[in-house]
Simulated assay, not measured.
Amino acid sequence: MYQLTINSLSEQEFLNQYWQKKPLLIKQGFRDFEDPLDANELAGLAMEESIESRIITNQNNDWQAHHGPFEDFELLTEQHSTLLVQAVDHWHPDAAQMLEPFRFIPNWRIDDLMISYSTPGGGVGPHLDQYDVFIIQGEGKRHWRVGMPDSNLKQFAQNKSLLQVEQFPAVIDCILEPGDILYIPPGCPHEGYAVENAINYSVGFRAPNQQDLLSSFADYVIDKEAGSTRYSDPLLETRESKGLLSTTEATEVKQLLSALLKDDSLFKSWLGQTTSEPKHEMDLMPPEDLYTTEQVAQLIDDSDEIFERLGGTRAIYQSTDNEIILSVNGQNFLLPKTDLAVVKLLTDDVSVTAEQIKSSKNSLKFTQSFTTLLNEGIWFC
């Protein structure tokens, strides 16, 4: 549905020259672009309790942030206001298609599709993001300035939920028109203001920090009741100072912790679960009559069914010596390596046919796993 053209660059050339290095203006990255939704549909999503949304206003340089859901849109004035809705790919199938051209970046790194609607002068002010983002211009025009990372730039809070940065020299200063795309690496200051009523689509990427990872891993170890090995010191010797915790003892403690990370099975199971967990709610609609494993096997074997993947689904896999770990929305499924071709189809494509996955019809583990995914509404006929 959407074909991405990165100027005259191949995807690998873009990764080599720009990814996490410097910003890039991509003129007509999406040719003949048509918006998958309009401002009214976006506003309708912002009225839903389960969908995260904000309205940012900047009247007379007085920045205010208001959190949804919204019952009305009086705050969305004719000028200097912006409506932002997170994870629209979880709720709007046509909008979710906009993520597909960017999947030359691995699935686990892609986060969600945020969509904004701004009236003239509307924006969120100059700010920094700690993750990569592609910003696609839809309806209207928007003026953007983007700078290079500068550790001396001062950040400040306009209010509790709006962090901005001081003014910066721009290396890109342009007006985006429908189909234009702006790539902004982490740490690059940027600001964009609508020239006229404008819709923008932001493809964001995950970049967990060490605190996030350690906290998640610790929770997983506790949940799995792993890490029960205790510290021991059978070769303990007397020492001159009773208060000394020796370098040798510190090293032993570090190795005790490292042993958990070196447990490949534990580590990969945790990694698959944590990187496939959605950050936002999903529009799950399980079937009224749940499938049995036998029904699913029959469905795969002798039908022309097409199985669609729910928008926002995070599907990744890892290979170990003995099996495949398929991780879908925070769940792990252990499958034989003979199912690798089918697992690739499920993680790489948004839809598959029964014929394509028929090679695994006799794999009980695959059929059981796919039955679970169908019954949860993550895949559907």
Rank of each mutant, 00 (worst) to 15 (best):
E11H: 14
Q12K: 12
L24W: 05
F33G: 00
A43N: 08
G44C: 07
I55L: 13
T57I: 10
T57F: 01
Q59H: 15
W63D: 11
H80W: 13
L83Q: 03
V85F: 07
A87V: 11
V88G: 05
V88E: 04
A95P: 03
M98Y: 00
E100F: 10
P101D: 06
F102G: 09
R103Q: 01
F104K: 03
D112G: 05
Y117E: 01
G121C: 09
P126F: 07
D132F: 03
V133E: 01
V133W: 00
F134M: 06
E139C: 12
R145M: 14
L163Y: 06
A170P: 05
I172Q: 03
C174K: 12
C174G: 08
L176Y: 03
D180I: 00
P185K: 13
G187M: 09
C188T: 02
I199Y: 01
F205M: 15
L214F: 14
S216P: 00
F217M: 12
I222D: 14
K224P: 02
A226P: 07
D233W: 13
P234D: 11
L235H: 11
E237N: 09
G243V: 08
T248C: 01
A250L: 15
K254R: 13
K254F: 11
L257D: 14
S258G: 15
A259R: 14
D263L: 05
F267T: 04
F267C: 04
L271F: 13
L271Q: 00
T274H: 14
T275A: 06
E281M: 12
M285Y: 05
E288T: 06
L290G: 07
T293S: 06
I300E: 07
I300Q: 00
D301H: 02
S303A: 12
I306N: 10
G312L: 06
I316R: 04
T320H: 09
D321G: 09
N322A: 15
E323R: 07
N329Q: 04
N332L: 12
T338K: 06
A341M: 08
A341V: 02
A341Y: 08
L346Y: 05
T347K: 11
D349C: 11
A354K: 01
A354T: 09
S360R: 00
L364N: 10
L373M: 14
L373E: 03
I378K: 04
C381Y: 07
